[in-house]
C-alpha cells in the first residue's frame, strides 16, 4: 500500500515539472493563439545552455538560471518579432510549419554542437538529498521542482490578472485591432509574451536537466507532455495546467509501477481518456 502511495506522491511531484512544460505553451496560446511545435526543443536547448554555463563558469545549475533565463527570454522576443509574428493570421498552417521547421533546426544544431550522447546537469548534494514523510521518502529536488512550479504559475497568474502587462495580454488576445487603439503595439506585446514563455522554458529546462539525462532528440516528447497537461487541465487555465501536469505525472508513475515499459504509455492513455470524456479538459476557462 505504502508503495502505491509513494508512486502517487512521486507522480504529483513529477507533475510539477510537466506543468512547467505546459505553462509556456498555455501562455502563448492564450495571448496569440500560437502553438509552438518547437516548444519541447527549446526546453532541451535551455538544458544545454545550462550545461554550457555550469561547465564554463563552474557554477551550480541554479546559478546558471541567472544567465539562461534572460538569454532564453531575449531569444523568445527576437524569435517572435523576427519570425513568428509574420506567421500569425487566420491560416493555421504557417505558424505550425514554421515552428516545425524551427524544431528540426534546433534539434540538429544541438546534435552538431553536443553530439547525441546523453548529458546531465550536475546538481551536487541536492540530487540525492531526501526527506522522510510518514514512511514515504521524498527527494528534495522533486519537492523543490514542484514548489518552483507552483511559484511560477502563481507569478504568471498574478502577471496575467493583476498587472498592466497582463491587461495588455488579455486585451490583445480579445481584440487585436481595438488593443492597438489603446496604444498597444501587438508585435511588441506578442514578443513580450514569448519572452515570458521562454523564461519559464528556461526554468523547466534546467530542472529537467538536473532530474534526468537529456539528449537532442527528446524535445518532441517534452512538447507532448506539456501539451497533454494543457489539454487535460483545460485550455486557457494556468492553474489547470498544474492539475493536468499532476494527473499526467501520477498516471505515468502508476504505469511504471505496473510495468516499467508502460510508464509513458499510461500517461498518453490518461490523456486520451480525458479527451474522450471531457474534450474541453477538466477546468476550461470560464469567461467572466
Amino acid at each position: 500500500m505504502i508503495e502505491w502511495t509513494g508512486a502517487i506522491v512521486q507522480g504529483i511531484l513529477l507533475g510539477g515539472l510537466y506543468a512547467l512544460f505546459a505553462a509556456g505553451l498555455s501562455l502563448i496560446f492564450g495571448v496569440m493563439r500560437l502553438v509552438n511545435i518547437a516548444h519541447g526543443d527549446l526546453i532541451i536547448l535551455a538544458a544545454y545552455m545550462g550545461l554550457t554555463t555550469t561547465v564554463l563558469l563552474d557554477v551550480h545549475p541554479f546559478l546558471a538560471l541567472l544567465i539562461v533565463v534572460p538569454v532564453m527570454a531575449g531569444l523568445g522576443y527576437v524569435l517572435q518579432r523576427g519570425i513568428l509574428n509574420r506567421t500569425l493570421g487566420d491560416d493555421i498552417l504557417p505558424p505550425l510549419l514554421v515552428t516545425f521547421g524551427l524544431s528540426v533546426i534546433i534539434q540538429n544544431v544541438l546534435l552538431e554542437t553536443y553530439t547525441a550522447d546523453p548529458r546531465k546537469l550536475a546538481g551536487g548534494a541536492i540530487e540525492t538529498a531526501s526527506v522522510d514523510l510518514g514512511g514515504i521518502t521524498l527527494g528534495v529536488l522533486p519537492l523543490l521542482t514542484f514548489g518552483i512550479a507552483v511559484a511560477v504559475i502563481a507569478v504568471l497568474q498574478f502577471i496575467f490578472y493583476r498587472t498592466s502587462l497582463g491587461r495588455g495580454f488579455r486585451a490583445v488576445s480579445d481584440n487585436q485591432d481595438i488593443a492597438q487603439l489603446m496604444g498597444l503595439n501587438k508585435a511588441h506585446v506578442f514578443g513580450v509574451a514569448m519572452a515570458l514563455a521562454l523564461a519559464v522554458v528556461a526554468i523547466a529546462g534546467i530542472l529537467l536537466g538536473m532530474r534526468t539525462s537529456f539528449d537532442p532528440a527528446i524535445g518532441g516528447g517534452r512538447l507532448i507532455f506539456g501539451f497533454e497537461a494543457v489539454i487535460i487541465g483545460g485550455l486557457g487555465n494556468l492553474w489547470g495546467t498544474l492539475v493536468g501536469g499532476v494527473i499526467l505525472g501520477v498516471a505515468q508513475t502508476i504505469g511504471a509501477k505496473i510495468d516499467p515499459g508502460f510508464q509513458i504509455l499510461a500517461g498518453h492513455i490518461a490523456f486520451l481518456i480525458v479527451l474522450a470524456i471531457r474534450p474541453n479538459g477538466l477546468f476550461p476557462r470560464v469567461e467572466h
Partner: peptide, 26 residues
C-alpha cells in the same frame, strides 16, 4: 487621437475598471 469604436467593442476578458485602465495605458 482616441476612437470610440462602432459597436463599443469592449474587451470581454477585462472588468469594467480594467477596460478603463487600459484606455489610460499610454
Amino acid at each position: 487621437i482616441a476612437l470610440v469604436p462602432e459597436g463599443r467593442q469592449l474587451f470581454p476578458s477585462l472588468s469594467v475598471e480594467e477596460n478603463l485602465m487600459i484606455g489610460g495605458k499610454l
